[in-house]
């Protein structure tokens, strides 16, 4: 279901600061809207984004309804060693998705 776009460099030099771009498809329903019948549309957003590098947390974000649909988050990290970068999104109504990418550090 969930569709993610991730841009992590496959290779980097040791100590290099790399940019990680992420986008998760999600409508981010704000909870501030009403349907045609006047009933409030319940909030349905991604609330948490976590990035780990070989299991160690390197970045975390708490998201609010003011984040645009299809949350886009870009951050940086230092390429320390070869391994796996894992990205996890969690949200309302049990939303959970993750993406992995391997990076080779020379």
């Amino acid at each position: 279901m969930a569709r993610a776009l991730v841009n992590i460099p496959p290779k980097a030099k040791r100590g290099e600061v790399i940019t990680i771009r992420t986008l998760m498809s999600h409508q981010m329903e704000t909870g501030f809207r009403y349907s045609t019948t006047g009933a409030p549309i319940p909030r349905d957003i991604i609330t948490t984004f976590i990035a780990t590098y070989n299991g160690e947390e390197i970045f975390r974000a708490e998201l609010f309804p003011a984040i645009a649909a299809n949350p886009f988050i870009t951050f940086t990290t230092v390429a320390t060693e070869s391994g796996t970068i894992e990205l996890t999104w969690r949200g309302d109504n049990g939303f959970a998705a993750s993406e992995q990418a391997t990076i080779t550090v020379e």
Partner: peptide, 13 residues
């Protein structure tokens, strides 16, 4: 470990 203190996103205003 971030190396640089910079983040980007897209928001609603």
């Amino acid at each position: 470990r971030a190396g640089r203190a910079t983040v980007s996103t897209r928001m609603r205003l």
